[in-house]
Simulated assay, not measured.
Amino acid sequence: MSTFFINHIAISVQDVAVSVAFYQKVFGLTEIENTASASPTRWLALGDGKQLHLIPRPGETVITNKAVHLALATADLASFITHIKNLNIDYADWRGTPTKDYVRNDGIQQVYFQDPDGYWIEVNDDA
């Protein structure tokens, strides 16, 4: 059996420029060339060769729930929480308690918030 690795995550967005700005502002992601096509889809580097593809789908409804989310890890969750507070981004724990982080049974702390299209993002300290 072959070994598989995550290459990229692709999400549909209403306004690709707004989404690019959000992910750059919140996570400092660098835009990279879309080498697949001349489409208006824009790519961001997640590090370690991984990518986030933002595919414009204006007018389409995105239906999300917290169980389907992008999870990113950082070694300094406290600084990241300060960063998103400074950006006036509302966050909560898994249960939805505003401005609260959550400690899982395995000791990992995490917060949740949404991007401009309503996608849920978890940031934890499992780095």
Rank of each mutant, 00 (worst) to 15 (best):
G96K: 00
A73H: 12
D48C: 08
D125E: 09
G107M: 12
I108F: 06
A78G: 13
A73I: 12
G49Q: 09
I84N: 01
Q110K: 12
L46W: 07
A36H: 13
D93C: 07
D90I: 10
S39E: 06
L44I: 15
Y119N: 09
A38S: 14
N124K: 03
R95I: 03
Q114S: 07
N124T: 02
I84L: 05
S39W: 04
R57C: 11
Q110H: 09
I63F: 14
I81Q: 01
H83C: 13
L77E: 01
V62C: 07
D125M: 05
L52M: 05
I32D: 01
Q114K: 07
V111M: 03
L87N: 03
R57W: 12
P98F: 02
D126A: 15
T41M: 06
A71T: 08
S79R: 14
I121P: 01
A127H: 13
F113K: 03
P116R: 13
V68Q: 05
T82M: 14
I63Y: 13
A71P: 01
L52Y: 01
I63S: 13
K50P: 10
P40M: 09
G118T: 10
A71F: 12
P56H: 04
L77Y: 02
Q109A: 07
L72P: 00
S79H: 15
T64G: 05
S39V: 09
N124Y: 02
P116I: 10
N34D: 07
Y91I: 00
I63L: 15
T97E: 10
I84E: 04
D90M: 10
L70A: 02
L77Q: 04
T97K: 11
K66T: 15
D106E: 07
Y119W: 11
I108P: 02
V62A: 15
R104G: 07
W94Y: 09
I108M: 09
V111D: 02
S37N: 13
H69C: 05
